[in-house]
Computed example of a mutant assay.
Amino acid sequence: MRISTSQMYSQSTSLMTKLTAQADKAQTQIATTKLGVTAVTDAAAYVKLQQITQATTADATYKSNINVASSVLAQTDQTLESVETQLQRALELATRAANDTLSDSDRAAIGEELSAIRDTLYGLANTKDDIRGQPLFGGVTGDSAYVKNDDGSISFAGTGEPSAIPVADGESIQPSISGQRVFTTDQADMFAIIGDLADALKSGTDVKAAAGTALTGINASLDQVTLARATIGARGARLDLKSEQMTAVAETRETMRSGIEDTDIASATIELQKALTVLSATQSTFTKLTSLSLFNYLK
């Protein structure tokens, strides 16, 4: 039987080329820690990786939005806590103002402090968030939430409720609250309540009646602030839950991605060693065969 020399060369060369390609592929997968999935090598896996990448990118945006919203909510709550502190002091002063034994100078001093509290509340009502520079309580528009009018009164200058921030597909949250639900509502206007009592104390006009009205109004204002803080707290808790859910989904998604795309180093190393071993043996055999005379193949 005559064995074709060209056939022997062709088969050996083809095998060595294949083994070399296998070794190179394994080495690349080990070095890059990636399997190198493409639309050609594995169309289904490639499409899945694209979907995972898109979802991860979207979540990164939502995660950033959650961080912004959480920060603004925290600042809103801190500001409302300061408002509560001012109102509680105003309540103490209003209680003292109702005391008939106070002198005119005492009442005037209380009136001055109440005026200062009103100014402080005005400043708090115009607080801007540290991240976006927007009024915390200004609704959707305007540079200031509240303005002082020519007659000295204070009124809301914003519009509606604050714009919501997207935190997931089809889900958004308001990071602050309108001042109309905190400082001035149909039930109470804390600026007017405190201002009227301050004016009455300074002028000495019907202080007892003014103090009684103020006590009712300040308590109502405190109730408003408490409700506002509860609303902000609930939104913060919702964001915390959303963040935890997003983290869990991200971990699951990363596990899926790794299973599709990442190299199993141990397995790849074994495949590399096998390919190199067979390649070495094939090269050795090929060298020996090619060194023989053509007559060694004839029988």
Rank of each mutant, 00 (worst) to 15 (best):
G111F: 01
I117Y: 03
D130S: 15
L80G: 01
R96W: 09
Y122V: 08
Q88A: 15
T76C: 13
R107C: 07
N67E: 15
Y122S: 02
N67M: 11
D129W: 03
D130G: 13
G123C: 07
E84P: 00
I110Y: 03
L87C: 00
V83P: 00
E113Q: 09
D77S: 09
S82E: 12
A69H: 04
S70A: 15
L91K: 14
L91D: 11
T79S: 13
D130M: 12
V83L: 11
L114I: 05
D106H: 01
V68M: 14
L87H: 02
L87W: 00
I117N: 04
R96S: 14
Q86C: 02
S115L: 09
A98F: 10
R89T: 03
T127H: 01
E92H: 08
E113A: 06
G123W: 05
D129N: 09
T76L: 10
L93C: 02
T85H: 13
I117T: 08
L87I: 02
L80C: 05
T120R: 09
A90W: 00
A109I: 08
T101Q: 11
R96T: 13
S82A: 14
G123Y: 06
L87Y: 03
S70Y: 11
A97M: 03
S71Q: 14
V83Y: 02
E113N: 05
L91E: 11
Q86A: 15
D129E: 09
D106N: 06
A97P: 00
L102A: 10
G111Q: 06
A90H: 02
N126C: 11
A90S: 06
Q78Y: 10
Q75L: 05
L124G: 04
